[in-house]
């Protein structure tokens, strides 16, 4: 069997295996969230201020919250399998619709952050490793240390003060200027303009991580025997660095990047709040306080599916990067 059909088989098998994993996560999340005190009705009633117990009971009945937990779970699972994530009473909208609406902003932010962090991290790490123990290496290391140690929200606020308030280069918040009703390319440009500050803020922390990792990985690979072999063949240092060492050094960085995509969704809550970015992180945060379990479960479901998918992508990329890994 050739390689590409092997990979295809592998991907389809992994996708099938992903379904029970995601369902298991749904069940786990369902019970975890129900462990928390209070429900959506408590919150709604609390906000309305003058709800009678009878009225609350009626609302619970309406939302289906009066049934035993197992029944609620069974109903929920049945709906999930039919790709119906339920209804958010809080937002008065279908959860699916709500999530998809908020998913694109988060996806844009995540993808740009990952690209920026991994891309620049690799470049900076490479640069530091090539200039080992010189001032250039030190500058990169100090930069990495500072960005690693600085809290995200503070960076976000300082960015706004510096680049939005003092200098009016970038907008302070939001994803686009909806009042302008941009279309087509103009709209893309507008979103990109809004994207700059949140992306930089969110990626700085990860950038530091990848820089340090890439530098260490390069140095480790420089010490390997095959580097001496390459030198003994008379291969130039340039080729040793960029062909022999670089490809081997990338492997751990790619693994790490895959693992962190999941963490990024969590990390984006802060950045989304600071920049009022209308993404999933914000939505999850709000729905947690509103005890909007349907919505929260939906978000969790989407994130777990995303993590499963990203892991699969990383594994396939890894197969191409490292011939020793066999899809099996």
């Amino acid at each position: 069997m050739n390689r590409s059909s092997k990979i295809l088989r592998y991907v389809s098998r992994r996708l099938i295996q992903g379904i029970p994993i995601i369902l298991a996560i749904v069940v786990l999340n369902f019970f975890l969230l129900n462990l928390a005190e209070g429900d959506a009705v408590d919150v709604l009633a609390g906000e309305a201020g003058s709800a009678t117990p009878e009225y609350m009971e009626e609302m619970r009945k309406k939302f289906g919250l009066d049934k035993p937990l197992a029944v609620q779970l069974a109903v929920y699972l049945k709906n999930v399998i039919q790709l119906d994530l339920g209804y958010s009473f809080r937002h008065d909208m279908q959860v699916t619709e709500l999530i998809i609406d908020r998913f694109w902003p988060t996806l844009i932010l995540m993808v740009s952050t990952i690209l920026l962090a991994v891309g620049f991290g690799i470049l900076l790490g490479l640069f530091a490793a090539i200039n080992l123990n010189t001032w250039k290496d030190s500058v990169v290391s100090v930069f990495a240390l500072i960005t690693y140690a600085t809290p995200l929200f503070w960076v976000g606020l300082m960015m706004i003060i510096l680049f939005s308030i003092k200098n009016d280069w970038f907008p302070t918040s939001g994803m686009e200027n909806s009042a302008m009703f941009y279309e087509g390319f103009e709209r893309v440009k507008d979103i990109a303009h809004h994207l700059v500050l949140p992306t930089i803020t969110l990626s700085l922390f990860y950038l530091a991580l990848y820089t340090r990792m890439m530098r260490a990985s390069m140095l480790e690979q420089y010490g390997q025997d095959y580097v001496i072999t390459a030198r003994a063949k008379g291969v130039s240092e340039r080729r040793i660095t960029f062909v022999h060492v670089l490809r081997n050094a990338l492997l751990p960085v790619v693994t790490m990047a895959g693992v962190q995509v999941g963490a990024l969704i969590g990390g984006s809550v802060i950045v989304e709040s600071v920049f009022a970015w209308p993404g999933l992180g914000m939505l999850a945060f709000e729905s947690l306080f509103a005890r909007d379990l349907n919505l929260l479960l939906g978000i969790f479901l989407l994130s777990s599916a995303l993590v499963v998918a990203v892991n699969l992508v990383v594994d396939v990329v890894y197969c191409f990067l490292d011939p020793r890994i066999e899809v099996n």
Partner: peptide
Amino acid sequence: MRQIRGSEISMVFQEPMTALNPVM
């Protein structure tokens, strides 16, 4: 030296697994 290495003087190492680049 780089010219000499590999063409006029060449070398075989002990550990044939690690002495070859695993991804090439």
